[in-house]
Design a protein around this nucleic acid. Structure first.
Lengths: 209, 209, 209, 209
DNA sequence: AATGAATGAGATTTCATTCAT
DNA sequence: AATGAATGAAATCTCATTCAT
């Protein structure tokens, strides 16, 4: 391993350290309540070092949220576009993709699920804010597309497809939140099964027999 | 009217002024971004006066959230207890009560719907926090009771009743949030109709035919 | 004296305290090297109080420089406009006005004479910076007008009037600076007489005999 | 060329690179606003390397100002000492030397002309500060010597020679500053001609006919 | 009871300087 | 000799809370 390779690897590691610490704290205490000092202490570096790698606090937040959200967004777009696959299956795939994203990067998921534009409207630049909003909106759009396909193809009852997408989306978020609270209290992990059950109910509710 | 009566009435009015202003601003800008000065200006009083009636900023927040949440909570408990009425109707009544609460005091509703324990865990005392959690949990519990009754009485399929309650609850919150965003963009108001539609779908999903 | 009168008077006094401290320190150490903490300590108040009366550090600077510079500017405009008075006398009046300004508010004078746009271009808003530049430029313009009149009326040799104005202006500033250094070393005060002498030389240089 | 020779030459070059970059930036943005990083980037070296050759930021500034000022100072001393040449001609020579210095190394000139002891009194050590002051003072002294000779030899009116020197010096600086501002605005370059004109006026003012 | 001036702790951000490689 | 990552002191500014009037 060359020196530059090692340096580059150490740099990557340092960035990961900071991002991990930030994600943990943002999740635990919220964006505003988390200070750069908190982050630097958890990452066991100095305050200045954070600014070596991230232009500002909101830049750090953005760099944490954007790639994960972007990836999920692209996955959902791909799934929504699989027109040959039945809408019911596609819905399940979309749920799987979202759950997968949640399991692989829970911190990022929480940042997204807690996302509250009003908190950041002063801190994030217009561009960044709009981009995040766009991604958030897109996820809902993909679900809507699938539902809409299901209606057109006669699988689902005629419902407002946007509304139906909202039902899926919010139920997902709500169950994760609720089940996590249960987990904290030391109970059995029913996250995946509850999600599945809930999605079944909604699918049942919208499907023709 | 005696002098003390008038004084007492003025005091009540003053407190209402402060609470209204705080609720509006907490909703519009979020808890952290709202300053005591903002609140006092909107209430047309001085900063010091706020502290005459409320111990601290978070005490003000708590006194805003608690009674509203408490009232809704009591309503839902009453509805859940109407064992003679069919679970389907009771669900609808619960939804009506929540929607009513939302329409009559949107600011308070938003405070509740955006309630994020982690943000306040540093600001609110342990008991206050626990009490709020308890009320939030209770609302879900009432929905669960109704669903559970519906299952026992053979109206609904056998599902996890807690999960079903979550579906109702989060769908409600999600639709309000989404439709409000639409309203802000100048579009038609579909809040009530979308709520109704969504609840129908979920009821359809869980009901036997 | 009513309570509000006294309060208002105390407020004025507080503002004066801050301005005086700021002017002293800006002059002694320069704008950048002077911290808000320095100012607040000299004024025997807290940091926060400075921000109670001034929006920002540059706002404080601006509020210090602008009125004084504005007053001088207006005086010079008035003098330049006294077309019935001979240019020679008007030049002397202009010098008197500037010296008067210097004596009455030496701190403001020094802030102006040290004014270096490049230092403030990052700190002062475009508007404020442009306004200050405009005032500085105006002073030179008035001198130019008088010189120009003198040339038209045959009193002065044909010279570039702008250049001649620069000679007057910079000689004034340079002498003050030099003589102040001498004063610091405990020598006799020759400020006024040296200014007079210098102005005589320049007038001699440009006048026809 | 031996290895040590090459090394030494490279070292010289490196130092020149740093100094040039620093001079450019100090002039363009001012001492405080210029960061060591800015300088190292312009010099195309690393931050650490700057500290290999200069003890500190102010040491770099000093090493930039001192030699330039020293050279000008020596030139003026030489000119002032040319007792056989008429004072009028010597004044012109002194102006030429200063203008020459300005044209050949404008960055250094600006560092000197903007030199403000108060800003550096905290940054530079006592001796360094005193030495710079001494050099600045010397330049004025040489002009004074020439003027004084002119008075003694009956060419000039009896004036305070120090004051007359100040007039020359500050007029020079002021004109450069003013004409540079004009140049920035895209106007014609009148620097040299305006300097000449101004010096003529002052000479006229002090000369007997 | 009401005011609002004053406080000062604490947040974000910058940058000269150091030091291990 | 050269690098540039890391440091941490210090600067600006905000705002919940106090308190004299």
């Amino acid at each position: 391993m060359s020196i530059s390779e090692r340096k580059s690897r150490e740099k990557e590691y340092r960035i990961k350290q900071i991002k991990d610490s930030a994600a943990t704290l943002f999740y635990k205490k919220g964006f505003v309540a988390t200070t750069i000092e908190d982050i630097s202490e958890l990452a066991e570096i100095s305050k200045g070092t954070v600014y070596l790698y991230f232009k500002s606090k909101d830049d750090l937040y953005y760099s944490l949220v954007e790639p994960s959200l972007d990836k999920l967004s692209k996955n959902l777009i791909k799934i929504a576009g699989m027109k040959k696959i039945s809408p019911k299956i596609r819905i399940k795939k979309a749920i799987d993709a979202t759950y997968d994203f949640y399991v692989k990067d829970p911190d990022a998921y929480h940042l997204i699920s807690r996302y509250d534009a009003s908190v950041f409207s002063k801190l994030l630049s217009r561009d960044k804010l709009d981009h995040l909003k766009h991604l958030m909106r897109s996820n809902l759009d993909q679900l809507e597309i699938i539902v809409s396909d299901g209606i057109k193809q006669g699988y689902f009852h005629k419902h407002n497809s946007k509304m139906t997408a909202i039902i899926f989306w919010n139920t997902f978020m709500g169950i994760i939140q609720f089940q996590e609270n249960r987990l904290e209290e030391g109970k059995t992990d029913y996250r995946r099964s509850t999600i599945n059950g809930a999605m079944e109910i909604i699918l049942m509710g919208i499907s023709k027999r």
